[in-house]
């Protein structure tokens, strides 16, 4: 048996890549030159304000609204997805109407609407429908900026999450609910114990995108005077007129937060994709190293599809 020799050949040259690299390097150099020489950027102001306590409070509020609105959105989403798939026509039509309405109106409009709810319903009360009331509150006391933000963002997110959850639930093989019915499990048990845990693999990645998108959408809440990152930034530059540097400060914080979320999303997805994908996806660092130092290598094969139909069966 002869030992096979590794092939030694002249690799294919890629002159186009070098031209593209050169063009991009020039553009990047121009940008940095502009950023460094244009005094209007006022980098010193950016640096001074980056850890300003009002800005940090805004960052904290942004994180907090994102978390709470996502919890509301995910909970509503799962409930409406299950309703939409229910054999009960009333439930499924209500779910469809909800999704239609909240996806069909801009979230900014919804936010302003909730904030001005008092103009429509001055008092909120609990009681028997068309009968006596037990307790009531002034709407303006109940709908604080935070409540308006929560209702606007949460209800809107619920509509999107409902569609994501529905796709996840429908991705689970019908044989699974059949098998659990055959064992005598109820519809609710089947959903909770068998279908939803398997749907998670499909639901998680787009939910990650929704979290990142929500983080940025919270900036809309500034219109109802909730002191989150953008609102607090505006408060400062309304005083100092340093609009651009302060918007850069806000952007830096948004970028930091979305970067953290992106990295988190990568690991969560890798965790839920376990066993279903033929190879483990590389981390950012691994990919960066490969791309930087192995310029001539072909790109890696696309990672196996998340929903490999054969993954469950050998």
């Amino acid at each position: 048996m002869t030992e096979s020799q590794p092939i030694k050949a002249v690799p294919v040259r890629h002159p186009g890549r070098w031209v593209a690299t050169a063009v991009i390097l020039v553009l990047v150099a121009m940008f940095f030159n502009m950023a460094a020489t244009n005094a209007n950027f006022s980098w010193d102001v950016v640096w001074e304000n980056l850890f300003n306590s009002q800005i940090l409070k805004g960052v904290w509020a942004t994180i907090w609204i994102t978390i709470v609105a996502m919890i509301v959105g995910v909970a509503l989403g799962v409930i409406f997805a299950v309703m939409r798939l229910s054999p009960n026509p009333v439930l499924s039509n209500v779910a469809m109407a909800y999704i239609w309405f909240f996806r069909g109106t801009p979230v900014l409009v919804q936010l302003i609407f909730w904030f001005n709810l008092a103009a429509l319903v001055p008092m909120l009360s609990i009681g028997i429908p068309f009968g006596p009331t037990f307790a009531s509150w002034d709407t303006n006391d109940v709908i604080t900026p935070f409540m308006a933000a929560l209702l606007g963002l949460g209800l809107n997110e619920g509509a999107y999450m409902a569609e994501i959850a529905r796709a996840g639930i429908q991705s689970v093989d019908e044989g699974q609910s059949e098998a659990s019915s055959a064992l005598g499990m109820s519809r609710a048990q089947t959903m909770r114990r068998i279908v939803l845990p398997q749907a998670m693999r499909v639901i998680i990645p787009p939910t990650g995108n929704e979290v990142i998108s929500m983080l940025k959408t919270t900036s809309l809440v500034s219109v109802v005077a909730l002191p989150e990152l953008l609102y607090n930034t505006q408060q400062i530059y309304a005083r100092t007129y340093q609009t651009i540097p302060l918007l850069i400060v806000a952007s830096i914080w948004y970028l930091i937060l979305t970067s953290v979320l992106t990295i988190g999303q990568f690991y969560v997805e890798r965790h839920f994709g376990r066993g279903s994908s033929s190879h483990v996806r590389q981390t950012f660092l691994q990919r960066w190293r490969r791309n930087m130092f192995k310029f001539h290598q072909p790109p890696p094969p696309p990672s196996a599809t998340l929903l490999d139909p054969n993954s469950g069966v050998r």
Binding site: G175, Q176, E178, A179, S180, L183, P197, V313
Partner: peptide, 24 residues
């Protein structure tokens, strides 16, 4: 009702062509 139908299915075991084990 669904609940009563489910109760009766408890007494009947079923084995499927594609196994349908719960993968998780």
């Amino acid at each position: 009702r669904d609940r009563d139908a489910a109760k009766k299915r408890r007494e009947i075991g079923m084995v499927f062509q594609r196994f349908n084990l719960f993968p998780h």
